[in-house]
């Protein structure tokens, strides 16, 4: 298909040489939800050489409102997202080399892949995985692009090891209860806006046009007509444990990761956050009730009724997910609510 990329090679900063580079690069997409499916489609249409897509969930009805590769048939078949995405992407571009990984983005999986990819696109729904990506990116020298959205609001940041501050410089610790699509809702246009920013930066990285990389933390609110760029060069922290002079890559260490365990003889998974924390059960309860969840509780715990599971959440962030023995699924349920 010789004419296929003609409008893209016409674009001078890419050109024929850029197109050749794009076709030889390997991008790792972590998460195949709204941002994952959208970014995957842009990169597939742009002719990226290889895409590896990791996702632990299957396609659900509530995904169809904003996750662009999926159809009603995928919901009926309960296809894993990574597999459904691969199927559609090959219909769009059969020349593509796509690897679908159905499962959790663990440190092992990500570090392994870091040895062969040119770029990581963050399309996850939680900060634990993002901080893990951030550490792996620094350790293996692979650029990554943070993206997130909720309601009509979204943000993105491009992180180039050795050149820009990293996410740990900016956040210092994992934000607890970052707003998620399951607690704040989300509209399709906000998703598209983050995809536009992430995929533009991805193309710059793939054609190695380093001088045009955005040097700011961008955030926007499409409903309220806000758009802000924050300069971040000052944020680079030489004491940062992820990218500073003495590095421990804390989020690759197991003690800094959420613990999960199947409880013997019960259809239940227990989840423990890595650090002591205090969750405002009252606030969360109000929030979840206004979203239509059925909530019972007392000062020490909340019991949240979900479609197929029941989650009991304690003040210290520990939770029991009743109704499943699947650790990956239980973690997914937990992080959808707590981010």
């Amino acid at each position: 298909m010789s004419d296929r990329y003609s409008r893209q090679t016409l674009f001078a900063p890419i050109g024929f040489e850029g197109q050749r580079m794009i076709s030889q690069k390997h991008v790792l997409l972590i998460g195949a939800g709204a941002l994952g499916s959208g970014n995957a489609e842009v990169l597939a249409r742009a002719g990226v050489g290889k895409l590896t897509i990791i996702d632990r969930d299957y396609v659900e009805e509530s995904n169809l409102q904003r996750q662009q590769l999926y159809t009603e048939q995928d919901v009926i078949e309960k296809l894993p997202k990574a597999a459904a995405a691969k199927k559609r992407l090959l219909e769009i571009n059969h020349e593509l080399n796509i690897k679908a990984v159905i499962g959790d983005a663990t440190p092992e999986v990500i570090e392994d892949l870091c040895r062969e990819v040119d770029l990581i696109l963050d399309c996850t729904d939680n900060f634990e995985t993002r901080m893990l990506i951030n550490d792996a990116s620094q350790k293996h020298g692979v650029p990554w692009i943070y993206g997130a959205c909720v309601s009509s609001y979204g943000m993105s940041l491009t992180i180039i090891p050795g050149k820009t501050p990293c996410l740990n410089c900016l956040l210092k610790k994992i934000p607890l209860q970052g707003m998620t699509c399951d607690t704040g809702g989300i509209i399709g246009p906000a998703v598209q806006m983050v995809i536009a920013h992430q995929s533009a930066e991805a193309l710059k990285i793939l054609v190695e046009d380093w001088e045009h990389i955005r040097q700011t933390f961008v955030s926007f609110d499409l409903w309220n007509n806000q758009y802000t760029n924050i300069k971040i060069s000052k944020a680079k922290d030489e004491g940062c444990l992820s990218c500073g002079t003495t590095r421990t890559y804390p989020y690759l260490q197991s003690e800094n990761r959420t613990k999960t365990a199947v409880l013997c003889g019960r259809d239940t998974v227990q989840i423990r956050p890595p650090h002591d924390t205090v969750i405002s059960l009252e606030t969360l309860s109000k929030q979840l009730k206004s979203l239509g969840y059925e909530i019972k509780g007392n000062p020490y715990l909340l019991s949240i009724e979900m479609a197929e599971q029941r989650m009991v959440l304690f003040q210290d962030g520990r939770a029991l997910i009743h109704g499943t023995k699947d650790i990956t699924h239980a973690k997914s349920v937990y992080q959808r609510i707590l981010g």
Partner: peptide, 29 residues
Amino acid sequence: SAINEEFAEDDEVIQKGDIIAFIPPVSGG
């Protein structure tokens, strides 16, 4: 936090006329 569209640490001191912005990171994706 940002002061005048530049990232700011918690201990930074605010000057006259500075515009401060508070940007909460979100998780959704």
